[in-house]
Nucleic acid binder design. Structure first.
Lengths: 237, 237
DNA sequence: GAAAAAAGTTAGGGCGCACTAACTTATTTC
DNA sequence: GAAATAAGTTAGTGCGCCCTAACTTTTTTC
């Protein structure tokens, strides 16, 4: 029974890069899965060699379990730290959008910097001020203070079967140009849509949304997550 | 006429430490005066040797004029950078206090971190949201977008002649405990007070404020800045 | 299962920013 | 103005985080 032994150093406030690594690893492994060095490197736009070094340091702090040549996995304390940062990020995004009228394609970059500087108290005040939202402006779930998140995996629009209807629950938040385009098409969280057709060989996906019909490429569709609706309606008429 | 020649590198966004140095140098030299290495070191709680190194780097970036063994002086571009940071700091303090109900003794520390992460756009939106304040919660003037500030020098309460009345315009913002105490005594920007007596040998200063009479130590009084009132009133009665 | 490809690592270097210790230049003091 | 003191500097280190180049391990391929 020689468990524990690791998990040293309590909560010695992390550096900004460390928080970014943890966020990335969390995003890759969605909580439990392992993250490969190359994936982390790509996500952070950093050389793989640099990741090896940093991952070592984070492992020494008990934030992740690291086995040479076999990727990395968050420990419980690493997961908590990642979710803390994620909460900050998403609360800040929501606040900027709600309280300061920030355009939704720019909240991400601003939050990306502020998340490392804002205190928990500030973040909690922001959340309280805008009514404790459960998702950010792009539909991503906001972790609670005590570190729980909705980790439901949704289908991407690219995979939604033809004929199926669903509600947009979330769009990817990193690319401002893409967000502006989605807004133009009115593909926004909460909107209901139906997949009409999908052209072969990665061709465009045709869908109806409200009373308009539109077609988008699969790369875009992959960035839109859908909660499928139990296929009702569409019977009469 | 071999002026210019220096002032290289345009506005290559500064690091957080660099911004802190510029702020400190500005505060010491109030715009024009020179700042000594030791003063900078003390203000930033850093070893003097470290200051020598950093000051070199900032001089290379054209942010300050540096002559070995003879202190440092902001260039025009250094001054602009310092005021940009100061504006951020003070707008953020004001916003935290106004919009988020942050207690006035804690806004400083929070702003100290956020000022390095917030974009100019965010700061401008904050300022607009709370009605473009001209001073922060402690009474410090907020530089405008285009880099001008009110640099009026006020008398400290410690130096106000006996019998003189004045309005509190500003209190020092860094020490939370002191701010709480000042709030308790109701010595706040905007309050009118009159110096009644000053005990010798750095003794307490007695003053009236509203209908209460109180006495404070000279160390505290030195941190309270006053706009003297043309001595009227107090004649009848 | 051997060769090729992919993934991941160490080695060595650089920059920013801090430190202490030892030295140099300015300033004060008498 | 010489000696003492204060102020400021260089020299040498360390740590965090990044890089490229070269090497090793794992996985894929046939």
């Amino acid at each position: 029974m020689s468990a524990a032994r690791e998990e040293a150093e309590v909560s010695e406030s992390l550096t900004a890069p460390a928080e970014d690594y943890l966020k990335a690893i969390y995003a890759i492994g969605r909580g439990s899965g392992a993250a490969a060095t190359n994936e982390i490197a790509q996500r952070l736009a950093i050389a793989p060699a640099s990741v090896s070094g940093m991952v070592r340091r984070l492992a020494d702090q008990g934030l992740l379990a690291y086995e040479r040549y076999h990727g990395v996995r968050l420990t419980e304390s690493g997961r908590r730290a990642a979710l803390r940062t994620l909460r900050r990020h998403r609360v800040i995004e929501s606040y900027l959008s709600e309280a300061l009228g920030y355009p939704w394609d720019r909240v991400h970059d601003e939050a990306e910097r502020l998340e490392h500087a804002a205190s928990d108290e500030l973040v909690d005040r922001m959340a309280a001020t805008i009514g404790e939202p459960e998702v950010d402006p792009h539909g991503a779930p906001i972790p609670t203070r005590d570190g729980s998140v909705d980790e439901t995996e949704y289908t991407s629009l690219a995979q939604l079967p033809i004929g199926t209807s669903g509600v947009v629950v979330r769009v990817s938040d990193e690319d401002p140009a893409m967000l502006r385009y989605l807004a133009e098409l009115s593909i926004l969280p909460g909107k209901k849509l139906t997949v009409k057709a999908r052209a072969p060989y990665d061709g465009p996906i045709t869908l109806t949304l409200g009373r308009q019909e539109l077609s988008i490429g699969p790369a875009l569709a992959a960035n839109v997550l859908i909660a499928p609706l139990a296929d009702s309606g569409r019977r009469r008429g």
